[in-house]
Design a protein around this nucleic acid. Sequence first.
DNA 1: TTGTAGTATGAGACCGGTCTCAGTTTGGAG
DNA 2: CTCCAAACTGAGACCGGTCTCATACTACAA
Lengths: 362, 362
Amino acid sequence: MDKKSSPFRPVTVADVARRAEVSKATAARVLGGYGPVSDEVKLRVQAAAKALDYRPNELARSMSTGKSGTIGVVVGDIENAFFGIAVRGISDKAHRSGFNVILANSGEEVEAEKAALKVLVGKRVDGLIVAPADNRSVGHLRDIVRSRRPLVLFDRPIEDLAADTVATDDREAAFAATQRLTAAGHRRLAYVTALNAEPPLFIGLDQLYTSSVKARIDGFLAACRAAGIVEPERGVCLAGGGAEGRQRAAIERLLSAAEPPTAILASDSLVAFEIFKATQTLGLGIPADLSLISFYDAEWTSVTTPPISVVDQPVYDMGTRAAELLIARINGAAPPARHDVLPNRFIERGSVGLPRRLPATA
Amino acid sequence: MDKKSSPFRPVTVADVARRAEVSKATAARVLGGYGPVSDEVKLRVQAAAKALDYRPNELARSMSTGKSGTIGVVVGDIENAFFGIAVRGISDKAHRSGFNVILANSGEEVEAEKAALKVLVGKRVDGLIVAPADNRSVGHLRDIVRSRRPLVLFDRPIEDLAADTVATDDREAAFAATQRLTAAGHRRLAYVTALNAEPPLFIGLDQLYTSSVKARIDGFLAACRAAGIVEPERGVCLAGGGAEGRQRAAIERLLSAAEPPTAILASDSLVAFEIFKATQTLGLGIPADLSLISFYDAEWTSVTTPPISVVDQPVYDMGTRAAELLIARINGAAPPARHDVLPNRFIERGSVGLPRRLPATA
DNA sequence: TTGTAGTATGAGACCGGTCTCAGTTTGGAG
DNA sequence: CTCCAAACTGAGACCGGTCTCATACTACAA
């Protein structure tokens, strides 16, 4: 009745070795494919392995080699198609290179991010790809770098952190998109993001802790100023996620104000989706009453009436690129940290028009 | 220069034990939280662990306990929002119960599914959730069951496989949706799926290897027959994925035929999306020229003009349910395999209308 | 024939935890 | 004061692989 006799105990190299009448070391050499073995013995071991249906225990293998063949990915929100595609890009590249992916969700919370990182490090992943939730709290990321574990930052660069980074030029893209709105004559512009900030009213860039959003707002403000708009900060709307429906409420409030914006730049496709729905319930027409541009070329933006103009981010490529950089480092490459910036592409569709009534200042 | 002196070697229990001046066994008891230890020693060990920044090696832990604290998930296509949400449901439940998730993509290919399963079993996951790509080739799944590793089938039941299953009543949902179309007077109906089958023309249910799709087509055909439609099989369109654009071509061919369908039931939201786009490029109006119902309440279906009526599948709940069943089994529960069928909900929107011209047989 | 290089194999340490078992202390009961 | 049980601690086996090292054997050149 000892455990050796259990019919469900997984088959080990020792079992195979016994059956093939060779030593454990020799069987391991065949099964692991690493040492010199005579053809005759090799065949015998392989036959025994097949007969017993041997499946190597990757855990044990990882422990002795120190490599797990796994990379850890921490994203803000898998439900967001942006990250969904990114993960797909990462997975595809990883699998092609023989790596597995362990996925974790931070829900954009630093504490959850820390916990996820702890687990992944505990599992001895060979490297990490992280979209940092908060660029003010990066001690845990610094620890990763210090421990020499390869780390790639995704979409959100962090200054003076010596890690490879893959991002898009958010400031430039926001600037260009905003220019299209000002060029059309808009003067009351809003930038809407789901970001939660303290305090909930926008008072300055320093208050923002997601670097990509910060860069975008920076670009937005710069373009507004370039167009002679005063106090464009007043157009920045932090429609935080949080409680169910809170975001929608914030957006409806924005659109129902006495002097509502005539054009909106949406920070991501989820926010844009809410804005679009709000225009429907409020009976606003696009682009007649409101011009709208969104970040990320989400599926739905191409089938609405009118379709929505977007800043198309090369998310899948960002994913593969991040995996590429990471795997290169895992395989020993050790160049100085590089910051890759992939170009965005503006997709003109039908959601930008002239402001309904030109403001008096025009 | 030996490895013991490397400053980047991870800290082990032995290191902590040495520093706390206790035995490895005692340090392990504190760190693992399992044996009786005096408060004084406990504090000393904890202090040493903190000072050295000890991080347990989960791999080693898994090897000796035989539990990895990880569940493996194999889905058909992560890019499909259906699976995206499902994974979210699974992850949420898993994390709440202290499990991690390793994700793998089969791309709806059995061989890839087998490979993924092999890797996951190699990593000694505690249990598996799989959406089987092909219900004719299930030997590898049978092996899992035989090896006593907990397995839950997701969305696609397999007959006489003793594994827990979570699915929706696909036949019933398809039947009801089809009835809505026939009730509106439609007589030329089509069912469009991305499924690839051999041969590419629909000849019978036996040829289909994704059980959920099979059940849906069965429901579709039954509803058609109930409405007195002859040879409804001719309306089944296997618009296989495969090469880029092949699916779109098949759909455009269908819609441009001499006697095109006046109503379509789409097997998933990706196919429905293609159909919707095709109507736009072909200048067809919904529901004037074509009525459309899709499976899965994808985001985009609510913002088109008109919005699309859908069979809303409780995907997130299916995910949490699957994880629940799996974790119960991992924790030792061993009831006979249960097949949970979650109810679908029909969401009436604006994409179903009367056929443009009633067929002569009406 | 002997020396030597090279190949094939086995024995056993090792990775970093868990866990069993034996030995030591301690405390309360008799 | 003695005895026994419970609490604590340490030594070392174990999980299932990898990998180093020593040994046995082969073959070829000198």
